[in-house]
Write a protein that binds this DNA or RNA. Structure first.
Lengths: 168, 168
DNA sequence: CTTGGAATGTCAACAAAGCTGACGTATTAT
DNA sequence: ATAATACGTCAGCTTTGTTGACATTCCAAG
């Protein structure tokens, strides 16, 4: 598209060339593989998948969350989430309790077993993240987060921001 | 794990707390959804998936690449790639030519039609990336790339670096 | 020249994880 | 009373990944 030299304004816009953007795109692709690699190995042993990891992660983050809330965070259909949730409940990693205020709702919590798996998964994922953060330094980390936040959809950012405030 | 206040060294290591790392993890999760959302919409119209996008992207990046090379970039099995490649070839988006030096190899190129889809997909993805870059600024972008590179596996980084050098 | 190994392709079978659509059952809200 | 909400479930389909087995073609080394 604009593969030619961009018009120079006051400050350099060279970081917005198609070439730079393409590198960013490929960096996201390759980095995301690394990002999921370690938890994936642990999950494979227990014959769970990434979908289980995501459910466990967000139940851990928001203990007592309802199915509907989890649904809107994860952005999948209830049938898809239900399949995952059912196995986690059957396997005793999650428990689902009827709400006292609104009895239609189910509140989800990790059992001690579920919490143990959550810890194993997030330890593995954090280890890599920590190494990357340490290698890049605090200024780079701030930039990393800024760009990612700017890349999110509206509602994803809403969920992300909502999580941010807890346990600060 | 180390949810308590970390020991302070000379410079602040507060950016390595579990809390900070968790935010980074969630940022990656939510941002990746945004990252793929726009191309996904285009792909859905033509009833292709992300796997097709990835193949098209890297064939565009490395015209004439062999199946084996593509395999190692994408990190999937040949059966999985072959299914995707077959539909792209049948649909006339990619063509596969027997190598003249080594006739076992197939060299992959985008047809004009394939190149057109590639452009549509990468335009959509770049638009979002550009908006994020612009919003975050050049310093943040540098940090973004540094952290992502540090997060990659060895061989992913090899592939990434190899791509980097072309058309610089 | 023959043979072993590499690169590719194909068949079959399967699993994870997404989707749509339809339906049932509590429970709550209007 | 009726409508809407929250949840679960059945059935069926798609994409994208996996293993395993096997054929073909070709290069290179013995």
């Amino acid at each position: 598209m604009n593969d030619t030299v961009p018009p120079q304004t006051g400050q350099s816009l060279l970081f917005l060339t198609d070439e730079q953007l393409r590198k960013g795109i490929e960096a996201m692709f390759f980095a995301y593989r690394g990002f999921t690699a370690d938890p994936d190995r642990i999950l494979a042993e227990k014959s769970y998948g990434r979908a289980h990891h995501r459910a466990i992660h967000f139940i851990h983050r928001s203990p007592g969350t309802t199915v509907n809330n989890l649904l809107s965070i994860l952005g999948v259909t209830k049938q898809s989430l239900n399949r995952v949730l059912r196995t986690l409940i059957e396997d005793g990693l999650v428990d689902s309790t009827v709400g006292q205020a609104d009895k239609r709702e189910r509140h989800l919590h990790l059992t001690p077993e579920g919490a143990a798996l959550e810890r194993a998964l997030s330890d593995a994922q954090r280890d890599r993240m920590r190494a990357a953060y340490r290698a890049a330094g605090p200024a780079a980390v701030a930039g990393f987060r800024q760009v990612l936040e700017a890349m999110m959809d509206e509602d994803a950012r809403r969920h992300y921001e909502a999580m941010k405030d807890r346990s600060e």
